[in-house]
Simulated assay, not measured.
Amino acid sequence: MTQPALRLAALAFALSCAVPAVQAHNAWLLPSTTVLSKGDTITVDAAVSNDLFVANHAPLRIEGLQIVAPDGSPIKPENEARLKHRSVFDVPVSQPGTYRIAVLNNGVFASWKDKATGQTKRARGTPETIGKEIPADATEVSVTQSAGRIETFVTVGKPSALKPIGQGLELIATGSPTDLVKGEKSTFTLRIDGQPAKDLEVTVTAGNTQYRDKLNELKLKTDDKGQFSVTWPAAGMYWLDASTRDNKTTVPQAKERRLSYAATLEVSP
């Protein structure tokens, strides 16, 4: 994908951010650091941008923000703010171990033909509200469920194991997602509802895309166990994303479920 194409994709996504987003493409969380020797407070930027990790387009909505401490307890963000080009918040990280910081975008999307005008209408909402949006006499009704996860990880001291979520599309690292090193190979597993995500395309893109004529992203694919490996070509911040769809909906009206995942990972020299 060229930079102009990335910008167009980012624009389309940003427009959808007025409500919970369908996909995580070009949307990211960027922590001020991913590894600390002792407890402190980190700052996280959240945005949808023209260039990876450069807040130059639109803020990411963070209503679905979830921060989980190493012991599994939830943590409340501090100093939340929505700026013109980015959202920002602080996270106190006092416990030793690995923290998961994620924004969840779950919703339902519907389209139908209006009986009176013949025009196509669209609405977004929750499983509880979407039925109220669709008129009783609507035709050609299509309902789609979406489940997206955008996340990053921070470790204080020694890394700790992350508890699998078991819902939607998720990433599981063989080692620690905060212990990645230039020139070394890292192995990950993608799962859907706790089961291996087989034959799924994964894209890994280094930051600083504004300084490159080409994205030079790595295109990978999961095996029968949902596993894939990355040999990191350089140090820096990377954006990993994947998406798929299936018919395993939990919303009665929906015939399709769209799943997306994105993570920001830091690679050390």
Rank of each mutant, 00 (worst) to 15 (best):
G131R: 01
H85G: 04
K121H: 12
T139P: 00
N106P: 09
N56H: 00
E170D: 15
I101V: 09
N106S: 09
D90K: 15
R86C: 00
G168S: 13
Q66Y: 09
A123Q: 07
N79D: 06
P59M: 03
P74W: 01
G157T: 05
R61L: 08
K158E: 13
K158I: 13
G97S: 09
V88L: 06
D114Q: 15
T152H: 11
P159Y: 05
E170S: 12
D71Q: 00
A147N: 12
P77V: 14
V108I: 09
G131P: 00
T126L: 04
F89E: 02
K163V: 09
H57P: 05
A136G: 10
N56F: 04
A116D: 12
I165N: 03
T120K: 10
R122S: 06
A110K: 14
S111W: 08
S87Q: 03
G72C: 02
V108S: 12
L162D: 05
R82Y: 11
L162G: 02
L83P: 11
D90R: 08
P77K: 07
P164G: 07
V141S: 07
E140L: 13
E80V: 14
I130H: 10
G157Q: 11
G64T: 14
R82C: 12
I67M: 01
V108N: 12
G97F: 08
R82Q: 06
F89P: 10
A58N: 06
T144Q: 06
G118I: 01
D114I: 14
A102V: 05
R124T: 06
L104V: 08
S111C: 06
S94A: 07
A136R: 05
P96L: 02
F109P: 11
G166S: 10
T152E: 08
A136L: 07
V91P: 00
R100C: 04
K113S: 12
R149W: 11
H57G: 08
R61D: 10
A147M: 12
T129R: 13
P70E: 03
E133D: 14
H57Q: 02
E151M: 15
D90L: 03
F153A: 10
L169F: 09
G157K: 11
K76Y: 02
D114P: 10
L162T: 04
F89C: 07
A69L: 00
P92Y: 09
P164K: 10
